[in-house]
């Protein structure tokens, strides 16, 4: 899934609006986006844009379990 951390706020807002209007094809975000007001979407966008950019912060399920056991998931790299 695309990471939102560090994404420019306008990209998040425009994507959410496009999902809401149905102009961007979606799998799940069509319905999720319709649950939020424009103001709420902006609030989320400003939050995510301020998070440190992370790319590929993804793991296999087994890795996730192993990392969880080691207490290392979610820690800053």
């Amino acid at each position: 899934m695309p990471s939102l951390a560090g994404m420019p706020a306008e990209q998040i807002i425009e994507s959410m609006m496009a999902f809401k209007k149905g102009t961007r094809p979606a799998i799940i975000m069509d319905r999720v986006s319709r649950g939020y007001t424009d103001d709420e979407i902006k609030t989320m966008a400003y939050f995510f844009t301020k998070q440190p950019l992370k790319q590929w912060d993804d793991t296999t399920l087994a890795e996730s379990v192993a990392a969880q056991a080691a207490g290392s998931i979610g820690a800053p790299k």
């Binding site: 695309p2 990471s3 994404m7 990209q11 994507s15 496009a18 961007r24 094809p25």
Partner: peptide
């Protein structure tokens, strides 16, 4: 359209966000 390439990469191949 059928394979939903356009959902991420955009109608003309210009993506919606920085991820793609």
């Amino acid at each position: 359209k059928d394979m939903m390439c356009i959902a991420c990469h955009g109608e003309q191949g210009k993506p919606y966000t920085m991820n793609f």
